[in-house]
């Protein structure tokens, strides 16, 4: 087991991943711009992807990496759809501030 994981240590991957995830969460919570929220979600996703890969190597099991490919593909699709929605929202409302998106108010 002589790879980069050994030199850095699994804990640091976890720390980094948690840090990234938290940044993502706070980004989602505090920013009003939908694109930034979107990017924050991407950060969270990638945080999880990083963790997946790290554990995959740690356990010598390739399944985690397979998952990452999946989630990257899904994320790409999601971005495509999500951005399209945002574009049409912007066209309709002239803004992408999420505070303005209250049409679902019960």
């Amino acid at each position: 087991m002589n790879n980069i994981l050994n030199q850095i240590g699994i804990e640091n991957y976890i720390f980094l991943s948690v840090l990234l995830f938290c940044i993502g969460v706070f980004g989602v919570l505090y920013r009003r711009n939908a694109i930034i929220v979107f990017m924050s979600i991407e950060i969270m996703l990638n945080a999880v992807n990083l963790l997946f890969v790290a554990f995959s190597t740690y356990h010598q099991d390739s399944e985690g990496q397979v998952f990452v490919f999946f989630s990257m593909a899904v994320a790409a699709a999601e971005v495509a759809v999500g951005l399209a929605i945002l574009v049409s929202v912007f066209r309709n409302l002239g803004s992408i501030d999420i505070d303005n998106l209250k049409n679902l108010k019960g």
Partner: peptide, 18 residues
């Protein structure tokens, strides 16, 4: 009663979610 929770504030939804 339930619809009061559904106030459309995405920020709040996310906060509750987290």
């Amino acid at each position: 009663q339930g619809k009061k929770i559904q106030n459309g504030n995405i920020g709040l939804y996310l906060f509750v979610f987290v």
